[in-house]
Design a protein around this nucleic acid. Structure first.
Lengths: 229, 229
DNA sequence: TTACCTGTTAACTATCTTTTAACCAATGTT
DNA sequence: AACATTGGTTAAAAGATAGTTAACAGGTAA
């Protein structure tokens, strides 16, 4: 699984915030939703998001102030304001604070998404969607179905088997660091999970043993490389 | 094109209302969005909607009052309450006012859509028409009649049995996630409904045990796959 | 009321997945 | 070569998930 793009959403209306977040997640983003500017600033520093959506009117630290603070640290991250006011004055104030765009409430999700895409594209961070099946020698792997099917067999993978194999398929012929695999498939990296991964590598190798020319190669001390013919 | 299904949405929070409407329209519904109960009542009479989504807290005429008024005129139209309060008292009051379901804010659009679909299906107003019978081995399943009939037997399914089996029949050979089944058949996804589903799976399996080659396969940790020969 | 019928909850059991542990093999370093 | 580190393999332990049966609650009909 490719690393998701992180959005920082600062919106004090909880219900609205939830539903915006829900829609954005549905669209494939990772969303950090903060109810006020103070928390948003905290999470900004902690999570290092790729794009910010800031409500202008928030308790504890309004959108303008927050934007200025973020701009001080990072002068390329796209900052989009969400606001109910259509005052020209506010708009100017917003751009002065470092905003890249200014979206009026109420907005449609379609509109929000397309504006987000514009800025991500500008920053070369477009999401590329994953193919829904991979050919591995004579075997076909369909992640959505947890299925690995060859001419003489068909088997259903478990969750981890599938996620791991999918990650390998997404990066053929590349050396994948143990750490990166762990972070992507397990979400964190510690010693025991590393050993767990070793077990799963053994399993995947068994599953793919039939396929000549396919290999999960060990790069000692570094990680693995998955090669298909 | 088939005539769109009309939803009456009464929501006083304009921003939230707009985005809910946007999502519902995206899903193919026609939506009438009213900011208060007074207007909602007006539009109810004028537009004759197929389903109502009412916010409980509204100026000029609260959701309960409105629901009662609508129920007086029409005792079949599905009425779903949207509310931030989780008070049991409110819930009872809601059902007493004639509500069919009670959706807590914040909710995900996925959940809202599923619950709407459940009630539309129940009222035979589904958007996409489904085949009116399925052949499962030597057995014939007629959803509209809740009937499962084979050479040597004929039995009447209950509502949930029928909805569940119908959902399975609509997606043969696909891995259906537990969550999706729950959202489609029950309208929401929580732990206990999940256990309820397990019970129904057992029942369906018993009903179909006669049929060799038919199986409801468990994909552990994910969901189920229904396969016919 | 009583007697069902349906769907949910509960309790117990069975099964499957993942992690942990133990031991061994390979690699790299001194 | 001796040692330490890293990874491979297998099996058992732990944990999570699902199957099954029965009791229960709420509603409906006789």
């Amino acid at each position: 699984m490719q690393k998701k793009i992180k959005l920082l959403l600062a919106e004090d209306d909880l219900q609205l915030g939830f539903i915006i977040r829900d829609n954005l997640e549905e669209a494939g983003f990772e969303v950090i939703n903060c109810p006020d500017g103070e928390q948003a600033w905290e999470y900004y520093q902690k999570k290092d998001p790729d794009l910010c959506l800031l409500d202008v009117n928030m308790p504890y630290k309004d959108g303008f102030t927050l934007a200025r603070k973020i701009r001080q640290k990072n002068d390329v991250i796209p900052i989009l304001f969400l606001t109910a006011k259509s005052l020209e004055e506010d708009k100017l104030k917003g751009f002065a604070a470092g905003a890249d765009d200014y979206i009026l409430k109420p907005f449609s999700m379609k509109e929000l998404l397309s504006r987000i895409q514009v800025f991500l594209r500008r920053n070369k961070m477009l999401i590329k969607e994953a193919p829904d099946s991979y050919r591995i020698g004579n075997t076909v792997f369909v992640p959505a179905e947890f299925k690995l099917a060859g001419p003489d067999r068909e088997l259903t993978l478990t969750l981890r088997e599938k996620e791991l194999l999918e990650f390998l398929c997404q990066h053929p012929d590349k050396v994948l660091k143990r750490e990166d695999i762990l972070l992507h498939v397990w979400g964190k990296n510690d010693f025991f999970l590393g050993r767990s991964m070793d077990v799963f590598m053994t399993r995947l190798r068994k599953h793919l043993a039939i396929e000549a020319g396919i290999s999960i190669e060990t790069i000692h001390g570094i990680g693995y490389r998955f090669t298909t013919v």
